[in-house]
Design a protein around this nucleic acid. Structure first.
Lengths: 108, 108
DNA sequence: CAATTGCGAAACCAAAAGGTTTCATATATA
DNA sequence: TATATATGAAACCTTTTGGTTTCGCAATTG
């Protein structure tokens, strides 16, 4: 069982679940109500999110509220940021190149 | 075939491949040399990266060089950034809360 | 107390993912 | 030209993933 944040957010349903509980904790039934799959399927997704720390549970009576812990997304963010300078520089040089092309066009 | 950037970077081997070609394009053999799986397996990973736009190919004679197009990571980055304020605020309020606890400790 | 509600676990299933070996083709090179 | 190299495609296999239905248990509520 590889349970890392990268794998957790790879599934679009799980990303949608995160968006639903980002501002307000919900129980599984409430979440499942917004999807066309079974409650059990949603429960499994939530479980995966929990196992990698993106979500925590709080029991209240017979209900269990799932709450997002989005700080974990920082792991992915950090991984991406190591490359940002790289791709922005390349974008810059592409832009420069295009400007040169434009300039040539005008002088021709 | 769900071929989006989220799914592409979910696999650790593919992330490693990206790190290898981030600065210098390589052919499949060179990439495969750094892994313990077959060249064909690596080829498949590279293909997935290509299909979602994270990598482009340039043919040179009988060799094909794979080059990273990391700008595509922006899609993931953007998705994460929509939540950053949220989790940082929560972190702030947690810190405040801990400060309050500390303060109480001292006055007791 | 009896019925209902919210949940998680279990057993099962089809499709996708990740891997392998084998084969065909195109380009270099001895 | 014959041989070696770089690659992609094909067929196949096993494990993982995402889903289902069924079941049992604990907490609520009529």
């Amino acid at each position: 069982m590889r349970r890392d944040v990268f794998q957790a957010i790879a599934d679009p349903t799980r990303r949608e679940i995160l968006s639903m509980i980002a501002y307000k904790p919900l129980n599984v039934n409430s979440v499942a109500g917004h999807f066309s799959v079974s409650r059990t399927a949603i429960y499994k997704h939530v479980k995966i999110l929990t196992e990698c720390g993106l979500v925590v549970v709080e029991q209240k009576g017979r209900e269990r509220f799932y709450e997002a812990r989005l700080g974990k997304l920082g792991e992915v963010s950090d991984w991406i940021e190591q490359y940002r300078k790289l791709w922005e520089e390349r974008l810059d040089s592409l832009e420069e190149y295009l400007e040169v092309l434009q300039a040539k066009k005008k002088t021709n």
